[in-house]
Amino acid sequence: MELLNVTDLGKRYGEANAVNGVTFQIEEGKCVSLLGANGAGKTTTLKMLSGLLEPTSGNIYFQGTKHKDLRRFIGYLPQYPSFFNWMSGKEFLIFAAELANINRKDAVKRSEELLERVGLSDAKKRKIGGYSGGMKQRLGIAQALIHRPKLLILDEPVSALDPLGRREVLDMMREIKKETTILFSTHVLHDAQEISDDILIMNDGEIAISGQLETVIKQYQQPIIRIEFISEPYEWLKNIETQSFVSEIAIQGNVAKIGVTDIENDSQTLLKEIVEQRISIRKFELEQTTLEDLFMKVVKA
């Protein structure tokens, strides 16, 4: 079932278009990641969806209807979540619950439940000012979930965390995804690949690629031959580039990634060349393009 339908959503700041008419759908129960370089318009898009920014154009349909105030359906975790540092974690959650029109008694119960769930039970009475970055992030997720939103929007939930904190948050997201639809932005492609069902790639305020993660990867997947040289055979690579079976070459230092059409035949050809030309190599690998390669291609295009 379709939960969110966004059509031609745009946001202008004066002359600049931060988001330039994006259209996409989110299915209920899916975990969707929004990828893009810094400044691609991810945060602006998420803020419009969560009701913190007014779009300059376009429509947002939630469960088929256009609501005046979407906020009660949506839980939002900002990129840099901040709280009232003089409150304790528990106080803040009760406060957030009451703001979402939950009565005091249920608010207390729900807060305890979520504190347990995000692993902050031991710290619930401490002032938020003394929390670590990871704890704040988890409290941020708890406050976003407090009113049982239909859609959880997380803006860069793991980017600012250390590996341990990142793992914790990712595991938490995997749990949450069982019952709530999630839309999260990230520029850590590995995370997107790990937990999302669908992906949206934004570039320059537009959606460049969208679809099911596996389909997208398959669709844009390309066989690649990765050769690590001992010294960079520049001339030879230039020569290779002109051959018909090579679609592209990306060179990074001593490593060349050569996009080919038929991996078996073409690797034979390349190997033969290497032997004939007496080029010394350290590694010769056959690979498939990853999400990262796709991302780089979109962003650089």
């Binding site: 840099y80 957030a96 979402a100």
Partner: peptide, 13 residues
């Protein structure tokens, strides 16, 4: 400035 306003206003207030 601290950003807490965003957290408050993301609730249906």
């Amino acid at each position: 400035q601290s950003g807490v306003l965003g957290t408050v206003m993301s609730k249906p207030v």
